[in-house]
Amino acid sequence: MLELRLVQGSLLKKVLDAIKDLVTDANFDCSESGFSLQAMDSSHVALVALLLRSDGFEHYRCDRNLSMGMNLTNMSKMLKCAGNDDIITIKADDGGDSVTFMFESPSQDKVSDFEMKLMDIDSEHLGIPETEYHAIVKMPSAEFARICRDLSTIGDTVVISVSKDGVKFSTSGDIGSANVVCRQNNSVDNKDNETVIEMNEPVSLTFALRYLNSFTKATTLSNTVTLSMSKELPVVVEYKIAEIGHIRFYLAPKIED
């Protein structure tokens, strides 16, 4: 038996909006520690890892570990039927073939339940080693989204370079080229507006912009985003989900032949 009650149901709606275009089907894993998902896009270039910790739920009951295969397009259709202020409860029976999403309006005068069929998904779970990253950049998520969107009108790939001067995003295409440099700044009044660069070693990596643009659909989940990079390793683009967890996207770099 599984019963997870999330008061801020809009978070789950936003999570689905952030990942449904990258991944079609995924297993949601439920354990004592939380509600999580790890899934790759069909080309095995990008991976999303979601964690919603059990202590972030108002009520969290998971009698035994459960993996529930869901079609994210269908799940998103159902969650779109929840109001933004609704409380969402996820319910499932052990060994059952369906999951129920219950939506309660804040004043409790409307209660809906939507039952969705589960599916069997052969997912390839990857072991992601703990890594010391050469450079970690924390910046406003809206700024990162803006840069990715702007540069994708010029080129298909972006070179992200971190040096002591700042973080540089460069692209080029048929019509020309572009560079955006963000320097470290300290905002006294608002930490969310800060760009903070921790660098042990300069690092420069090339990525396909269309994936980064897809990741920025998570911008609504957090005011800040963290980019963690090491030479010849996938970048980690992390959005914290207030008080409850995170969504991390891993993107394999483009490497010179």
Binding site: H44, L126, G127, P129, K254, E256, D257
Partner: peptide, 14 residues
Amino acid sequence: KAKQSSLFTFFKKA
């Protein structure tokens, strides 16, 4: 020209 790598190059199946 830079070639797109796969996640399998970096991460092993668990």
